[in-house]
Design a protein around this nucleic acid. Structure first.
Lengths: 118, 118
DNA sequence: CCCCTATAGTATATAAAAGTAACTAACACA
DNA sequence: TGTGTTAGTTACTTTTATATACTATAGGGG
């Protein structure tokens, strides 16, 4: 179980050649990643806090997506050797640069919701 | 086969409550959607042209994602009753507003690639 | 007429990703 | 000895994505 997703993401390979967008998708394309990064925009959160803020995600998915984000340098994971365990997640230099983009996406979503009559 | 994905996306329901990001993800969260919109940023493209520009996508996926994008008002599909058939896809008012976001994502991807040493 | 090409798809079968539910480790407290 | 807490695992099922093959249509060549 040391490989979560095989070769594909080990070095952002495969579909990243040719299309600049494809490599981006490799890193933030997971179903929950942008949502996770959205919640980590301005807070350091523990695993359980993230889980509360993203009600529909399962523990397995949250763990998995966080590990991939960590591997790709988009979140920093800090484990405190306590009992019960405490693990904190925070954004990094790389994901900080995604913040304006995430904010814009959020605004776009609001506008789009209005346009679709609701 | 009249329902591509069931209820979930019919009205941007489900996970859109609570999290503003979730509704955005419902619309552009498909694996290929941002890539498709990226290629339609500044060109009107036929099905086959899109397929050439996105080599790893399969016809089925391209068809499916385009239909979902059309349904959500992000692409306009124009069929010319010719043989061989000609179908053109173009961006809409809604997706035009995504353009700066897509460009920023693209830039972020470039920067990120450099940082990861290559 | 038969075969070939081209375009924009469908259909079917298989692989991969995501979801579900139950289980674990470690200690604190009662 | 038994219960609660947190951050995960594990095994299993369902949903998505991919690969491959196939279809309809018209024009052109033989």
């Amino acid at each position: 179980m040391n490989k979560i997703k095989g070769l594909e993401k080990e070095g952002i390979s495969k579909s990243s050649e040719g299309c600049p967008m494809a490599s981006v998708m490799n890193v933030i394309g997971g179903k929950w990643k942008i949502i996770i990064l959205y919640h980590l925009r301005d807070s350091i959160l523990r695993f359980g806090e993230l889980k509360k803020r993203i009600p529909n995600i399962t523990q397995k998915m949250l763990t998995q997506q966080l590990r991939e984000l960590e591997r790709d340098g988009l979140v920093k994971r800090t484990v405190y050797p306590e009992v019960p365990p405490r693990v904190e997640y925070q954004s990094t230099y790389l994901s900080d640069e995604l913040r304006p983009i995430i904010d814009m996406l959020c605004d776009w979503g609001e506008k789009q919701k209005e346009m679709l009559g609701r």
